[in-house]
């Protein structure tokens, strides 16, 4: 835990600095403020990853999983609301823990956007997919998400959380005035897409999680990976 403290301090200081600048100088620049804050909140994970001692196997494993998540997005490009990336990210979190889950989610977002086009949405996707993998790993540690129903509910809920985080950049940047009604309106406009995303997550997790976990856990056991 004491390793967390300096990183946390850095992030808290950056948050305060950005909020200060935005209060005193850049009023009403919500999109810029949002992008900065989202990027800053991913900083501790990247610092931790840079400081950690991964061996070559773990590095290649993480990048291969992220590549599979990104390539899945390309494979499913014809079915835009079915996001296999989310499934792969959740599976990684479950099998290899929260840190690997975060890295795979964040890297998959950057790399898949190298094929789809980067934009103001990239940091938000990094954040949401990273958080998805992180929470999957954390919940697995705490309460065993092995019960299929719990896992499916987790996927369904994340479909909506992901959609709402992705609504935020559009709503805060380009919808004025920013009131509760307009924000809820933005969420309502994406309701159908979020529902399809959530349902497809639940569908995949219910149907395929066992066979995927078997594959990942076998690899983990065979090569003794990421066991700390």
């Amino acid at each position: 835990m004491q390793h967390l403290k300096p990183r946390l301090m850095v992030v808290v200081l950056l948050f305060v600095a950005v909020l200060g600048i935005s209060t005193f100088w850049l009023q009403d620049q919500y999109l810029l403020l949002g992008i900065l804050l989202v990027l800053i909140s991913t900083v501790p994970f990247f610092i931790r990853f840079e400081a950690g001692k991964q061996n070559a196997r773990e590095m290649v494993l993480i990048s291969m999983l992220a590549a599979i998540a990104a390539a899945g997005r390309v494979l499913f490009a014809a079915l835009p609301n079915v996001k296999p990336t989310s499934f792969v990210v959740i599976m990684t979190g479950l099998a290899f823990g929260p840190e690997a889950g975060f890295m795979v989610g964040a890297v998959a977002a950057i790399v898949s956007n190298m094929f789809f086009g980067q934009g103001p949405w990239t940091p938000w996707q990094m954040f949401s997919w990273g958080l998805m993998g992180l929470t999957a790993g954390l919940l697995q540690k705490k309460s065993r998400l092995e019960k299929r129903l719990g896992l499916m509910a987790f996927g369904l809920v994340w479909g909506f959380i992901f959609g709402w985080i992705m609504d935020v950049w559009y709503v805060i940047g380009f919808i004025h005035p920013l009131t509760w009604e307009t924000v809820l309106g933005g969420f309502a406009a994406s309701f159908y897409f979020d529902l399809v995303h959530g349902l497809s997550n639940a569908f995949f997790l219910g149907l395929l999680s066992n066979s995927w976990l078997k594959v990942l856990q076998r690899i983990k056991l065979k090569y003794g990976l990421l066991e700390r």
Partner: peptide, 12 residues
């Protein structure tokens, strides 16, 4: 991180 991204880009 850059190395991870680079490998990932090649894998896709």
């Amino acid at each position: 991180t850059a190395f991870l991204l680079m490998m990932c880009m090649r894998f896709v």
